[in-house]
């Protein structure tokens, strides 16, 4: 049985004002989910080359290698634990890992969105779900 580690939780802690940027991250990641669904995972390799976030770029490349979802999850988790990221950057990296594992599992963009929206807190999550519609998100940006 997994036991939570307070120190790991502490690493996720970041000021409320920084959390205002989270919906934008959710939109970007949901866009990748949509892209993977319509163009295939191989298309994410091209996106990886243009991605500025090194953790996201690395994850997209790993996905394009066709790793099984369990293996991808294991590798991304190892990178999360060993990275020296803290606060907002660590939270962002966790969201990236969550999204990539979700895409790798074959989740629909709507399900990926639901998994990510919860990071933003109840109020912003509701806003995001309304923005996309709960059934079929069609992000205008990033797709």
């Amino acid at each position: 049985m997994i036991q939570w580690n307070a120190a790991l939780v502490r690493r996720l802690s970041c000021p409320e004002d920084r959390k205002a940027a989270l919906p934008h991250i959710v939109r970007t990641l949901t866009g990748y989910s949509q892209k993977a669904r319509t163009e295939g995972l191989a298309s994410l390799a091209e996106s990886a080359r243009m991605e500025e976030d090194p953790f996201l770029a690395l994850g997209l490349e790993l996905m394009a290698e066709g790793l099984a979802d369990e293996t991808l999850e294991d590798i991304l988790s190892a990178y999360l634990v060993t990275s020296d990221l803290r606060g907002f950057d660590f939270l962002r990296a966790c969201m990236v890992a969550e999204a990539l594992v979700s895409i790798s599992l074959g989740d629909s963009p709507a399900l990926t969105l639901r998994k990510l929206a919860a990071y933003c807190g109840a109020e912003q999550a509701v806003g995001l779900l309304s923005e996309f519609g709960t059934a079929s998100p069609h992000p205008a940006e990033h797709s």
Binding site: Q3, A7, L8, E73, D74, L80, V81
Partner: peptide, 9 residues
């Protein structure tokens, strides 16, 4: 993912 990370830690 986070659970695996915690399990690793």
């Amino acid at each position: 993912t986070a659970a695996t990370a915690v399990a690793m830690a």
